[in-house]
């Protein structure tokens, strides 16, 4: 493939992923608001569209029309560009989700690596967003986010690594194709680690320290408003959806390896269930303290992930 064609395909995928992630974010925000509302014995959005589905769209329009405020003391170019730097990696992660057995939109062999590594780049965006705001809270939020995301990268990668070992491939499509039911009990610990680490990676409660409202007001995006703020939100929900889809794809073999439309439905259902569980956890638990968060990552999750790896390593010779 020529460089130009590759670039063209990349741009096309990027556009597609952006659209998908935008829709996914719309849906994600709606789902979160609905689930949170039900947990809190409310109805949530009701008025805009059926079941309030268009509420997020209406909010988006509002956010687009809002004044885009840049603080006087901010590092203006950095401040302005950082939302996109956070958004792009999250959107990019979507292109390696195994939507069907053996197929990912952007078929690279190291797809799992891509999924783990590329969204990790958004930590840079978050750190710089916090830093460029020239705001104490934002800075603290940015630094917390950096520490947290780097820490949780490790157990998350290790848990996926175990899968790669089982499947013998780094391509998520292959992992999905190779999946068989006995992986479920074998990979249980790995899935728990992946799930928790994904939540932490996405800076969502109970690991939402970087944006801890009660401590840091809104953390790294405290000074953002309007569309730029919305892009941060889209990144978060896009990441949420991507992590759920990827998890459902690789840990559950899509829809438990079922073929055809049934498999597709179960796959989506699993992803939705994972999303809802993440929301459920966020709205049930208090937030951890930074030191507790770190010790949890390094003292609980990483050993668990390593244990999982060892378990898989033990099983591997008999395959």
């Amino acid at each position: 493939m020529s460089a130009a064609a590759s670039f063209g395909w990349g741009a096309l995928y990027g556009l597609g992923a952006s659209l998908v992630i935008a829709v996914a974010a719309l849906f994600g925000v709606w789902a979160e608001r609905k689930v949170a509302a039900r947990i809190q014995m409310r109805y949530g959005p009701l008025e805009a569209g059926p079941f309030g589905l268009l509420q997020t769209l209406a909010d988006t329009i509002k956010l687009v029309l809002k004044e885009d405020v840049t603080p006087n003391s901010a590092d203006v170019p950095v401040f302005r560009i950082m939302p996109f730097l956070v958004f792009v990696p999250c959107a990019a992660a979507l292109v390696v989700v195994p939507f069907a057995a053996g197929w990912t939109p952007f078929g690279i062999e190291a797809g799992a690596l891509f999924f783990l590594a590329v969204p990790g780049m958004s930590v840079l965006g978050i750190l710089l967003a916090g830093w460029s705001s020239r705001n104490t809270y934002a800075s603290i939020g940015g630094v917390r986010a950096a520490a947290q995301m780097v820490s949780y990268e490790l157990p998350r990668s290790l848990s996926v690594l175990a899968l790669c070992l089982l499947a013998g491939s780094l391509d998520p499509g292959v992992i999905r194709a190779e999946w068989s039911w006995w992986w479920l009990p074998l990979m249980a610990i790995g899935f728990v680690v992946y799930f928790i680490a994904s939540i932490a990676e996405l800076n969502r409660g109970p690991f939402d320290l970087p944006e801890a409202e009660s401590e840091l007001v809104a953390g790294y995006f405290a000074d953002y408003s309007g569309i730029r703020w919305a892009i941060f939100m889209m990144a978060e929900y896009g990441g949420l959806v991507a992590a759920s889809l990827f998890g459902a794809g690789v840990f559950f073999g899509g829809g438990f390896g079922l073929p055809g439309p049934v498999g597709a439905v179960v796959f989506v259902a699993l992803a939705v269930a994972m999303t809802i569980c993440m929301v459920w956890a966020k709205w049930t638990f208090p937030r951890l303290r930074p030191d507790q968060l770190m010790s949890f990552a390094w003292k609980v999750l990483t050993p668990m992930a390593l244990g999982q790896l060892a378990l898989v390593g033990l099983v591997l010779p008999w395959l």
């Binding site: 014995m41 109970p206 801890a212 009660s214 709205w283 049930t284």
Partner: peptide, 16 residues
């Protein structure tokens, strides 16, 4: 106080 620690749902239940 719970909302300060991030447990917002508890806050809502208490407010109920």
């Amino acid at each position: 106080s719970a909302a300060d620690t991030g447990a917002f749902t508890f806050f809502i239940y208490a407010f109920d």
